[in-house]
Design a protein around this nucleic acid. Structure first.
Length: 243
DNA sequence: AACTTATCCAACCGCCGCTAC
DNA sequence: AGTAGCGGCGGTTGGATAAGT
Protein backbone atom coordinates (compact mmCIF):
# COMPACT_ATOMS: atom_id res chain seq x y z
CA UNK A 1 0.00 0.00 0.00
CA UNK A 2 0.93 3.66 0.00
CA UNK A 3 1.99 3.36 3.61
CA UNK A 4 1.89 0.92 6.51
CA UNK A 5 -1.29 -1.15 6.34
CA UNK A 6 -3.64 -1.14 9.31
CA UNK A 7 -3.89 -4.33 11.33
CA UNK A 8 -7.15 -5.81 12.65
CA UNK A 9 -6.06 -4.92 16.14
CA UNK A 10 -5.49 -1.28 15.20
CA UNK A 11 -8.89 -1.17 13.53
CA UNK A 12 -10.49 -2.59 16.65
CA UNK A 13 -8.78 -0.04 18.89
CA UNK A 14 -9.81 2.84 16.66
CA UNK A 15 -13.42 1.65 16.44
CA UNK A 16 -13.60 1.25 20.20
CA UNK A 17 -12.17 4.71 20.71
CA UNK A 18 -14.64 6.38 18.32
CA UNK A 19 -17.55 4.50 19.87
CA UNK A 20 -16.48 5.62 23.31
CA UNK A 21 -15.51 9.23 22.64
CA UNK A 22 -17.23 10.00 19.35
CA UNK A 23 -15.86 11.53 16.15
CA UNK A 24 -13.84 14.72 16.11
CA UNK A 25 -10.91 15.73 18.29
CA UNK A 26 -8.68 13.66 16.06
CA UNK A 27 -5.52 14.98 17.67
CA UNK A 28 -6.51 13.09 20.83
CA UNK A 29 -7.50 9.85 19.12
CA UNK A 30 -4.02 8.27 18.82
CA UNK A 31 -3.47 8.78 22.54
CA UNK A 32 -6.96 7.71 23.62
CA UNK A 33 -6.92 4.65 21.38
CA UNK A 34 -3.34 3.71 22.18
CA UNK A 35 -2.37 3.80 18.53
CA UNK A 36 1.01 4.60 17.06
CA UNK A 37 -0.60 6.55 14.23
CA UNK A 38 -0.96 10.24 13.49
CA UNK A 39 -4.29 12.05 13.79
CA UNK A 40 -4.67 12.17 10.03
CA UNK A 41 -4.17 8.45 9.58
CA UNK A 42 -6.78 7.74 12.24
CA UNK A 43 -9.27 10.09 10.70
CA UNK A 44 -8.72 8.70 7.21
CA UNK A 45 -8.97 5.10 8.34
CA UNK A 46 -12.24 5.83 10.08
CA UNK A 47 -13.78 7.87 7.28
CA UNK A 48 -12.72 5.62 4.43
CA UNK A 49 -12.90 2.20 5.95
CA UNK A 50 -14.29 1.73 9.45
CA UNK A 51 -17.25 4.10 9.50
CA UNK A 52 -20.63 2.31 9.50
CA UNK A 53 -22.71 2.16 6.29
CA UNK A 54 -19.75 2.39 3.97
CA UNK A 55 -20.66 0.81 0.66
CA UNK A 56 -17.99 -1.42 -0.82
CA UNK A 57 -17.73 -3.12 -4.17
CA UNK A 58 -18.38 -1.97 -7.70
CA UNK A 59 -20.12 1.27 -8.51
CA UNK A 60 -23.64 0.89 -9.88
CA UNK A 61 -24.48 2.39 -13.25
CA UNK A 62 -26.55 5.12 -11.62
CA UNK A 63 -23.68 5.99 -9.32
CA UNK A 64 -21.30 6.30 -12.24
CA UNK A 65 -23.74 8.54 -14.09
CA UNK A 66 -24.07 10.68 -10.99
CA UNK A 67 -20.29 10.97 -10.63
CA UNK A 68 -19.91 12.07 -14.24
CA UNK A 69 -22.65 14.69 -13.88
CA UNK A 70 -21.35 15.97 -10.58
CA UNK A 71 -17.81 16.11 -11.88
CA UNK A 72 -19.00 18.29 -14.76
CA UNK A 73 -20.52 20.66 -12.24
CA UNK A 74 -17.95 20.58 -9.46
CA UNK A 75 -14.65 19.46 -10.89
CA UNK A 76 -12.35 17.49 -8.60
CA UNK A 77 -14.24 18.26 -5.43
CA UNK A 78 -14.47 14.68 -4.35
CA UNK A 79 -15.90 15.23 -0.91
CA UNK A 80 -18.85 17.16 -2.34
CA UNK A 81 -19.42 14.51 -4.98
CA UNK A 82 -19.20 11.72 -2.41
CA UNK A 83 -21.69 13.59 -0.27
CA UNK A 84 -24.29 12.93 -2.93
CA UNK A 85 -23.52 9.22 -3.10
CA UNK A 86 -24.69 7.49 0.08
CA UNK A 87 -22.12 5.10 1.48
CA UNK A 88 -19.32 6.21 -0.82
CA UNK A 89 -16.25 8.04 0.40
CA UNK A 90 -14.36 10.84 -1.29
CA UNK A 91 -11.37 8.52 -1.65
CA UNK A 92 -13.50 5.84 -3.34
CA UNK A 93 -14.92 8.33 -5.79
CA UNK A 94 -11.52 9.83 -6.50
CA UNK A 95 -9.93 6.43 -7.07
CA UNK A 96 -12.78 5.31 -9.28
CA UNK A 97 -12.51 8.48 -11.30
CA UNK A 98 -8.75 8.21 -11.71
CA UNK A 99 -8.80 4.52 -12.58
CA UNK A 100 -11.89 4.26 -14.73
CA UNK A 101 -13.65 7.43 -15.72
CA UNK A 102 -10.90 9.92 -16.51
CA UNK A 103 -9.36 7.68 -19.16
CA UNK A 104 -12.73 6.76 -20.60
CA UNK A 105 -13.85 10.36 -20.79
CA UNK A 106 -10.54 11.55 -22.18
CA UNK A 107 -10.85 9.01 -24.95
CA UNK A 108 -14.39 10.18 -25.66
CA UNK A 109 -13.29 13.82 -25.63
CA UNK A 110 -10.56 12.96 -28.09
CA UNK A 111 -13.17 11.59 -30.48
CA UNK A 112 -15.33 14.67 -30.00
CA UNK A 113 -12.39 16.96 -30.68
CA UNK A 114 -11.82 15.36 -34.05
CA UNK A 115 -15.37 16.34 -35.02
CA UNK A 116 -15.23 19.74 -33.37
CA UNK A 117 -13.87 21.54 -36.41
CA UNK A 118 -17.40 21.81 -37.78
CA UNK A 119 -19.34 22.37 -34.57
CA UNK A 120 -19.05 25.38 -32.32
CA UNK A 121 -19.08 24.19 -28.73
CA UNK A 122 -21.43 26.03 -26.40
CA UNK A 123 -19.69 26.32 -23.05
CA UNK A 124 -22.30 26.22 -20.33
CA UNK A 125 -21.38 28.09 -17.19
CA UNK A 126 -20.27 25.80 -14.40
CA UNK A 127 -21.73 26.01 -10.94
CA UNK A 128 -18.29 25.58 -9.44
CA UNK A 129 -17.35 29.04 -10.66
CA UNK A 130 -19.71 30.65 -8.21
CA UNK A 131 -19.14 30.62 -4.50
CA UNK A 132 -18.89 32.56 -1.32
CA UNK A 133 -15.65 34.35 -0.86
CA UNK A 134 -14.47 31.64 1.48
CA UNK A 135 -15.33 28.76 -0.79
CA UNK A 136 -13.79 30.56 -3.74
CA UNK A 137 -10.58 30.93 -1.79
CA UNK A 138 -10.69 27.32 -0.67
CA UNK A 139 -10.57 26.19 -4.25
CA UNK A 140 -7.74 28.48 -5.21
CA UNK A 141 -5.18 26.54 -7.15
CA UNK A 142 -7.24 23.40 -7.38
CA UNK A 143 -9.91 23.74 -10.02
CA UNK A 144 -8.51 26.86 -11.61
CA UNK A 145 -5.20 25.39 -12.62
CA UNK A 146 -6.43 22.05 -13.83
CA UNK A 147 -9.01 23.54 -16.16
CA UNK A 148 -8.53 26.27 -18.70
CA UNK A 149 -11.52 28.56 -18.48
CA UNK A 150 -12.04 30.93 -21.35
CA UNK A 151 -11.58 34.61 -20.72
CA UNK A 152 -15.25 35.55 -20.77
CA UNK A 153 -15.95 32.84 -18.24
CA UNK A 154 -13.33 34.34 -15.95
CA UNK A 155 -14.92 37.75 -16.24
CA UNK A 156 -18.29 36.26 -15.40
CA UNK A 157 -16.73 34.57 -12.38
CA UNK A 158 -15.39 37.86 -11.12
CA UNK A 159 -18.76 39.56 -11.49
CA UNK A 160 -20.64 36.79 -9.79
CA UNK A 161 -18.17 36.28 -7.00
CA UNK A 162 -18.40 39.97 -6.25
CA UNK A 163 -22.15 39.74 -5.99
CA UNK A 164 -22.23 36.56 -3.99
CA UNK A 165 -19.56 37.64 -1.58
CA UNK A 166 -21.61 40.69 -0.63
CA UNK A 167 -24.71 38.58 -0.17
CA UNK A 168 -24.89 37.85 3.52
CA UNK A 169 -27.75 37.26 5.88
CA UNK A 170 -28.09 38.98 9.19
CA UNK A 171 -31.60 37.85 10.09
CA UNK A 172 -32.10 38.44 13.78
CA UNK A 173 -35.75 37.46 13.99
CA UNK A 174 -38.93 36.43 12.22
CA UNK A 175 -39.74 40.03 11.28
CA UNK A 176 -36.99 39.99 8.68
CA UNK A 177 -38.02 36.69 7.22
CA UNK A 178 -40.24 37.75 4.35
CA UNK A 179 -38.03 40.61 3.35
CA UNK A 180 -34.99 38.37 3.38
CA UNK A 181 -36.73 35.63 1.52
CA UNK A 182 -37.72 37.87 -1.36
CA UNK A 183 -34.33 39.58 -1.32
CA UNK A 184 -32.69 36.19 -1.37
CA UNK A 185 -34.75 34.99 -4.28
CA UNK A 186 -34.03 38.17 -6.19
CA UNK A 187 -30.33 37.81 -5.56
CA UNK A 188 -30.29 34.16 -6.51
CA UNK A 189 -32.13 34.76 -9.72
CA UNK A 190 -30.15 37.81 -10.72
CA UNK A 191 -26.93 35.87 -10.14
CA UNK A 192 -28.22 32.92 -12.09
CA UNK A 193 -29.32 35.14 -14.95
CA UNK A 194 -25.69 36.19 -15.30
CA UNK A 195 -24.83 32.54 -15.72
CA UNK A 196 -27.67 31.91 -18.17
CA UNK A 197 -29.03 29.18 -15.94
CA UNK A 198 -32.33 30.45 -14.68
CA UNK A 199 -34.03 30.79 -18.04
CA UNK A 200 -34.32 27.04 -18.37
CA UNK A 201 -35.28 26.43 -14.76
CA UNK A 202 -38.77 25.06 -14.02
CA UNK A 203 -40.86 27.36 -11.88
CA UNK A 204 -41.50 24.69 -9.23
CA UNK A 205 -37.81 24.26 -8.48
CA UNK A 206 -37.00 23.85 -4.81
CA UNK A 207 -33.58 23.04 -3.45
CA UNK A 208 -33.05 20.82 -0.44
CA UNK A 209 -34.32 22.41 2.74
CA UNK A 210 -35.88 25.37 0.94
CA UNK A 211 -35.15 29.06 1.29
CA UNK A 212 -35.82 28.81 5.02
CA UNK A 213 -32.74 26.68 5.48
CA UNK A 214 -30.52 29.17 3.72
CA UNK A 215 -31.75 31.99 5.89
CA UNK A 216 -31.29 29.94 9.05
CA UNK A 217 -27.83 28.91 7.93
CA UNK A 218 -27.08 32.58 7.47
CA UNK A 219 -27.65 33.23 11.13
CA UNK A 220 -24.39 31.53 12.03
CA UNK A 221 -21.07 33.14 12.55
CA UNK A 222 -20.12 33.53 8.92
CA UNK A 223 -23.53 34.82 7.87
CA UNK A 224 -23.03 33.37 4.44
CA UNK A 225 -24.44 30.39 2.66
CA UNK A 226 -22.54 28.14 0.31
CA UNK A 227 -23.47 28.96 -3.24
CA UNK A 228 -22.01 25.79 -4.55
CA UNK A 229 -24.69 23.68 -2.93
CA UNK A 230 -27.51 25.82 -4.22
CA UNK A 231 -26.19 25.90 -7.75
CA UNK A 232 -25.41 22.24 -7.71
CA UNK A 233 -28.97 21.44 -6.65
CA UNK A 234 -30.33 23.66 -9.38
CA UNK A 235 -28.12 22.16 -12.04
CA UNK A 236 -28.92 18.64 -10.96
CA UNK A 237 -32.61 19.37 -10.83
CA UNK A 238 -32.52 20.81 -14.31
CA UNK A 239 -30.36 18.01 -15.61
CA UNK A 240 -32.57 15.26 -14.31
CA UNK A 241 -35.75 17.07 -15.25
CA UNK A 242 -34.68 17.34 -18.86
CA UNK A 243 -33.36 13.76 -19.20
C1' DA B 1 6.36 -21.37 -15.18
C1' DA B 2 8.73 -17.04 -15.06
C1' DC B 3 8.87 -12.54 -15.96
C1' DT B 4 7.03 -7.91 -17.19
C1' DT B 5 3.53 -4.50 -17.41
C1' DA B 6 -0.81 -2.47 -16.09
C1' DT B 7 -4.30 -1.60 -12.81
C1' DC B 8 -6.30 -0.84 -8.39
C1' DC B 9 -6.77 1.41 -4.10
C1' DA B 10 -5.28 2.24 0.88
C1' DA B 11 -2.35 5.27 2.96
C1' DC B 12 0.44 9.26 3.11
C1' DC B 13 1.72 14.15 2.15
C1' DG B 14 1.36 18.96 1.76
C1' DC B 15 -1.49 22.63 1.64
C1' DC B 16 -5.51 25.44 3.06
C1' DG B 17 -8.86 27.96 6.00
C1' DC B 18 -10.45 28.51 10.57
C1' DT B 19 -9.95 29.37 15.38
C1' DA B 20 -7.91 30.42 19.73
C1' DC B 21 -4.48 32.67 21.99
C1' DA C 1 -1.17 41.31 13.72
C1' DG C 2 1.16 37.11 14.14
C1' DT C 3 1.28 32.33 15.03
C1' DA C 4 0.44 27.60 16.37
C1' DG C 5 -2.66 23.85 16.19
C1' DC C 6 -6.48 21.76 14.26
C1' DG C 7 -9.69 19.48 10.84
C1' DG C 8 -10.32 18.82 6.19
C1' DC C 9 -9.26 18.36 1.36
C1' DG C 10 -7.16 16.87 -3.13
C1' DG C 11 -2.99 14.98 -5.19
C1' DT C 12 0.37 11.43 -5.12
C1' DT C 13 2.70 7.21 -3.89
C1' DG C 14 3.73 2.50 -3.85
C1' DG C 15 2.53 -2.38 -2.60
C1' DA C 16 -0.63 -6.07 -4.02
C1' DT C 17 -2.64 -8.27 -7.59
C1' DA C 18 -4.28 -9.24 -12.30
C1' DA C 19 -3.32 -9.55 -17.08
C1' DG C 20 -0.29 -10.15 -20.78
C1' DT C 21 3.83 -12.11 -23.08
Amino acid sequence: MGGVAWTEEEDHLLKKCIQQYGEGKWHRVPLLAGLNRCRKSCRLRWLNYLRPNIKRGNFAEEEVEMIVKLHKLLGNRWSLIAGRLPGRTANDVKNYWNCHLSKKLNAMEGEDRSQATKNVEVIRPQARNIGTSSSMKRRRGIQGESSSPIESDLLAQQEISGMSSTMSFDADGQSHHNMLESQLENNIYSCLEHQDIVGELPMDFRFEGGVEEIINAGEGSSGQWDWDDLLLDMDLYKDFATN
